[in-house]
Design a protein around this nucleic acid. Structure first.
Length: 607
DNA sequence: GGGCCGAGCCAC
DNA sequence: AAACGTGGCTCGGCCC
């Protein structure tokens, strides 16, 4: 406790040395000095996080020896330094570059190139064992410096003069420091990136940042009328089921809790697991939980109705009106936040709204539409994760299935059950498919038995037969799990790493913890390599669109899928380009296994 | 009235 | 309720 109290005290150090730039002629004078530097630290201060609504107030630029704070209320024309930001050199060192890129692009028409992002680098360096990647955390870690968060908050606080572009000495000094400390953090991180062989993946992520920023800024259009109609239909159905359930429960509640319920109120809140559990008790149905898995096994009409109700309620609450609330008032479009290192495996995460969890049902997806005069291009890698497993394992039977462009699950069934293709029935194919996917998640006999509806012994038998046909897969999976435990990390084809806390051998839960690491160790190379490939594809597609001179744009991505929009006249050519670039990205990392991409062009987001 | 957490469930 | 990798959103319920 005393330690953390001490740590919270801002470190008192030498006065921050910076120059405040308040006129255009001085900006022109300092440009050569910035241009001559190998690296330039960059930071901005605005009064909002939304680039379309923010007022950009300060731009801080630093060389290793000098720091400049440009007052954008007084210097509005940034022409003298524009080319420095837009050229690949000097390298721009920025914490969370996506933010400053977006601000400068929308507010000043400047696009930053040659990015080194300290936040992205820190995530790559601590992936799996830490999520402390704020500038505050990084400054503390590398420089032993405690940044005062309260001063940063004044820039966006409407009660502060800083929110209107009037700064005091303290605020300017802190703004300057954020740009100044970039150089030292960069130097220290760079050494670590090299040490851990993370330079290739770091270059990929740094190149990706402007692509992701442009994708977010372009955003995606949603047909609000169609969306609301769909929601309204679901609400009608949900309310009907709710009333039915309340009517069923009413006699019960009068009898048991006559004074707790009255009037037209609902008997119980169906969204409350505890109230629901209570209702089941009163009905004499013994359940331990009201989760989906349990209710599915309960032989009572209420259980079925609850599951129906939940299905609609989930869709309405999570994807209903709240999603329309995310439409940007300035652009009229959705601009989701894509976190390029959201998952420890290297996958994107997405929020506000999360376009990666929109139900796959066409009634939802078709509401995401191309801009007027444009077509939407939906492209996804076919069975990319299984192909990656084939690449890692070099299993000849697996590789041959893909080389022949055969139905992998049917081929697996043929190999497992020793039958001819026309003898493969649905049950066989499903069992094969379940095992193919299950193994990538580190599933064991228990989980697979539940999934395909056999006993554990039968599942064990099936797995034994499977591994007889695919011994290379077994060998690789076993080694991947063991390596994760032994080395303390797993890595992708590109060299992206995810570290694991190795549990002590005498830990009471050692087997459980070790098992979990083994499963993650099997999955990370597969899921992470998929991320590597999709990220290269995004960069290639953006470059290709630019090179072709098309007014085409990425709109979003969902792990193994990339969605773009292009003017209707060139949509087919753009779709073909998307496919080519996705294949090129996969070929870069997958040396032996062939890849396939499915592409659709339509007026809306099509599965 | 905001923060946090677990339950439950959507995606790949 | 288990079971299996990666996430985010919404809700109820609890805390301060």
């Amino acid at each position: 406790m005393p330690d953390s109290a001490v740590a919270e005290q801002p470190k008192v150090d030498a006065k921050i040395d910076y120059e405040l730039i308040e006129d255009a002629s001085r900006l022109a004078e300092i440009a050569p000095e910035l241009e001559a530097s190998r690296t330039v630290g960059v930071d901005t201060e605005g009064n909002s996080l939304d680039p379309f609504n923010a007022k950009l107030m300060l731009l801080q630029l630093s060389t290793p020896t000098k720091t400049f704070v440009i007052d954008l209320a007084k210097v509005t024309d940034l022409t003298p330094i524009k080319h420095i930001l837009e050229a690949p050199r000097p390298m721009k060192i920025i914490q969370n570059a996506k933010f400053d890129y977006s601000m400068l692009k929308i507010q000043k028409g400047i696009t930053i190139a040659g990015i080194y992002d300290t936040m992205v680098a820190e995530r790559l360096l601590t992936n799996g064992i830490s999520r402390e990647i704020s500038l505050r955390a990084i400054a503390k870690k590398y420089l032993g410096l405690t940044l005062d968060k309260t001063i940063r908050e004044t820039f966006t606080d409407p009660k502060s003069m800083a929110a209107y572009g009037r700064f005091n000495e303290e605020q300017l000094a802190y703004a300057a420091r954020d740009a100044q400390i970039m150089h030292e953090i960069f130097a220290k991180q760079l050494r670590k990136l090299q040490e851990h062989d993370l330079m290739e993946v770091a270059k990929l992520e740094f190149q990706l940042t402007p692509v992701v920023a442009d994708m977010e800024l372009h955003g995606v259009l949603i047909d609000t009328k169609k969306w609301r109609e769909h929601i309204a239909n679901m609400q009608l159905e949900r309310d009907r089921i709710n009333q039915e359930i309340q009517a069923d429960l009413k006699p019960l509640s009068r009898h048991i809790q006559v004074d707790l319920f009255g009037g037209e109120d609902d008997v119980i809140n169906l969204d409350s697991p505890s109230q629901l559990l209570d209702a089941f008790q009163k009905l004499g149905v013994n359940v331990t939980s009201t989760g989906e898995a349990v209710l599915k096994t309960v032989d009572h009409p209420l259980a079925k109705k609850i599951l129906d109700y939940r299905g609609y309620e989930k869709l309405i609450s999570a994807f209903g009106e709240s999603l329309l609330g995310k439409i940007n008032p300035v652009t009229g479009r959705l601009h989701p936040d894509f976190l390029q290192l959201g998952a420890d495996t290297g996958r994107f995460a997405c929020s506000n709204p999360n376009l990666q969890q929109i139900p796959q049902d066409a009634s939802f997806r078709n509401c995401f539409i191309a801009s007027p005069g444009y077509k939407m291009i939906t492209a996804d890698y076919s069975q990319i994760e299984l192909r990656i497993m084939a690449e890692f394992s070099q299993d000849p039977t697996f590789l041959k299935s893909f080389a022949d462009d055969a139905d992998l699950h049917t081929m697996t069934a043929i190999n497992m059950f020793k039958v001819t293709e026309d003898q493969v029935d649905k049950r066989m194919r499903t069992a094969a498919k379940t095992i193919n996917f299950g193994l990538m998640y580190g599933r064991g006999p228990g989980a697979i038995a539940i999934q395909i509806g056999t006993t554990v012994d039968e599942a064990k038998e099936l797995l034994a037969i499977y591994f007889k046909s695919y011994s290379g897969v077994k060998k690789w999976l076993d080694k991947a799990g063991q390596d994760a435990l032994k080395l303390g990390y797993a890595k992708t084809v590109l060299g992206r790493k995810r570290w694991f806390e190795q549990p002590p051998k005498d830990h009471p839960d050692y087997l459980k913890l070790a098992g979990s690491i083994e499963r993650q160790g099997k999955n990370m190379p597969i899921q992470g390599t998929n991320a590597d490939i999709t990220k290269y594809a995004l960069i290639y597609i953006a470059q290709r669109f630019k090179k072709e001179g098309w007014d085409a744009h990425l709109t979003h991505t969902v792990h193994d899928e990339i969605v773009a929009e292009a003017p209707a006249e060139i949509a087919e050519a753009a779709a073909q380009a998307v496919e080519e670039e996705m294949l090129r990205a996969a070929d870069k990392l997958l040396g032996t296994v062939s890849t396939k991409v499915d592409v659709h062009t339509a007026d809306y987001w099509e599965k």
